[in-house]
């Protein structure tokens, strides 16, 4: 075992912990920090369930080592809602449009869409489908996810104009 101490920021909060160098970032978040909202669906970088934002960009947390996130600013599903508990417009849109069923792939899809909507405030449905093409959902057939993303985009644009 070769342990390393790791300090990083997750959802605006500083964490420090130790992990064996081979521990994936996903496992460190889940079992080291107890942030179990990030899920593992394949552990070989295809399903996208473990997608998080690392220093502002989406990444598969199963394809990163925890030690690589040393000093990084990480955002996970647990950090989406407002501090007062209100859901983020993207989360609300998922609820409104039935964009989730079992909810297992959902964290990765939400984090992917956070990046898309930040970069591209007015995406087309095709843009949304392209953005989530690296996220597998077995439940929804994706249509409700696309609808939720479009609603969220519209809602966030309103917020920007206001």
């Amino acid at each position: 075992m070769s342990e390393r101490s790791i300090e990083l920021t997750v959802n605006g909060r500083s964490y420090s912990g130790t992990a064996d160098v081979r521990t994936t970032l996903a496992d460190f978040l889940r079992h080291g920090l107890g942030l179990t909202g990030t899920h593992l669906g394949c552990e070989h970088g295809v399903c996208g369930a473990c997608t998080i934002l690392v220093d502002g960009v989406s990444a598969r947390s199963c394809l990163m080592l925890a030690v690589q996130a040393e000093g990084s600013d990480v955002r996970t599903i647990e950090g989406l809602a407002e501090p007062n508990g209100d859901l983020h417009p993207l989360q609300t849109a998922f609820r409104d449009n039935h964009g989730l069923q079992c909810g297992f792939c959902t964290p990765g899809i939400l984090m992917t869409l956070m990046e898309l909507l930040d970069e591209q405030p007015d995406p087309t449905e095709a843009d949304v489908r392209d953005a989530i093409s690296g996220n597998i959902c077995r439940c929804t057939g994706y249509q409700s996810i696309v609808a939720a993303a479009m609603q969220a985009a519209a809602e966030l644009r309103k917020g920007r104009r206001a």
């Binding site: 970088g45 996208g48 997608t51 989406s58 598969r60 394809l63 992917t112 690296g134």
Partner: peptide, 9 residues
């Protein structure tokens, strides 16, 4: 090439 999450890294 892959998907946006893989191209980011």
């Amino acid at each position: 090439v892959g998907h946006r999450q893989t191209r980011n890294r």
